[in-house]
């Protein structure tokens, strides 16, 4: 297994390189730049600005310089416990942001990622707590009214987008009932509405996938054998069917967790949460070259790692698979 993980990590290097190269050059070919503003700057000022940010160097040189700044140069993972500073820990320097000159991209990530992680974790918890029982219940009581209710709830969850659900929750619970703030990220109580909003969408998917996975497993011979041997219904479900039934959920969770952890632009905007999702989207609108690259690289890293985790977990859960 170690060999398999190492090989996958090595394979990730060229993937990352392609992503970085693609992003680096694509953003430069988009019209407008970080200093494009409604009020034009004078040519002298424009020249001064470009010199200040080394944007007047040849593009290839800027690319090579940037790659060098990104290359890990040390290994002190313990430094990460003292704030998520990738420069301190690995010598990875994402450089200062163009839009927010007094913050480096490393700092922005270190500030915002924990917020997105917190929101993501809670939402994921909400999603699993709601989604799994709904899905299992629906599968076990297939084609009964319980199934229809569970499936309808799940379908509604998929269909109602977060930008509708969020404001509706705020309208009901914050404005009419006055139980919560309309927006903000101050006390623990401010976590409730956003994680409910974000979690419910994932809960809906998880419920659908769980139901599907379970139905497939419950039809298989080994389940019939277990029942024939007189195993109780709960033993059949939790002992025999659970592992196989959750396989589709696990493969869904890989990319979903990457998305949920790097933040949700819509949720963060509705609830004014200082997370990474807004930076990710807004950096593109702002042509904040370094912040675009930083967030893209982080997101790509998450996806690569989480997909790897999913693959490992799947081999563990599914006896038909092996590390190869």
């Amino acid at each position: 297994m170690l060999r398999y993980v190492l090989r996958r990590l090595l394979e990730a290097i060229p993937v990352m390189l392609v992503i970085i190269t693609g992003t680096f050059f694509m953003q430069r070919f988009v019209p407008g730049g970080p200093f494009t503003a409604e009020k034009a700057v004078t040519p002298e000022v424009q020249r001064n600005l470009e010199a200040y940010y080394h944007l007047n160097d040849p593009l290839w040189k800027q690319y090579v310089d940037y790659l060098w700044d990104l290359t890990p140069k040390r290994f002190h993972p313990l430094a990460l416990t003292d704030g998520l500073d990738l420069k301190e820990a690995f010598g990875i320097d994402f450089r200062p942001s163009f839009k927010y000159p007094n913050r480096t991209v490393n700092e922005i990530i270190a500030d915002k990622l924990p917020v997105s992680l917190e929101l993501g974790m809670i939402s994921l918890g909400v999603a699993l707590v709601i989604g799994l029982p709904l899905g299992i219940l629906a599968a076990v009581r297939r084609n009964s009214w319980i199934d229809y209710i569970c499936s309808s709830v799940a379908m509604t969850g998929i269909c109602v987008p977060t930008f509708v659900l969020g404001p509706v929750l705020v309208l009901g619970f914050a404005i009419h009932l006055g139980w919560f703030n309309a927006s903000g990220w101050y006390g623990p109580i401010d976590r409730v509405l956003p994680s409910l909003t974000l979690g419910s969408v994932y809960a809906a998917y998880i419920a659908r996938l769980t139901r599907g996975g379970f139905l497939e497993v419950l039809n298989q011979d080994f389940i019939r054998t277990a029942r024939a041997k007189g195993a109780s219904e709960s033993r059949v479900i939790f002992r025999h069917a659970l592992r196989g039934g959750l396989l589709p959920v696990v493969s869904f969770l890989g990319p979903a967790v990457a998305g949920i952890l790097t933040g949700s632009f819509v949720i963060e905007t509705i609830f004014q949460i200082p997370g990474l999702g807004r930076e990710f989207v807004n950096s593109a609108f702002n042509r904040d070259y370094t912040l675009i690259l930083g967030t893209v690289i982080l997101y790509a890293g998450f996806i690569i790692v989480l997909n790897l985790v999913v693959d490992v977990v799947q081999v563990w859960m599914n006896p038909k698979l092996k590390f190869e």
């Binding site: 930008f163 404001p167 509706v168 914050a174 404005i175 905007t269």
Partner: peptide, 23 residues
């Protein structure tokens, strides 16, 4: 983008007034 999407329509119209939360 958000003005278009973030449910302005859902909350438009009447503005009921309630007591402010503790904060």
């Amino acid at each position: 983008f958000l003005a278009l999407t973030l449910g302005g329509a859902f909350l438009g119209g009447g503005c009921s007034r309630r007591s402010a939360p503790a904060a």
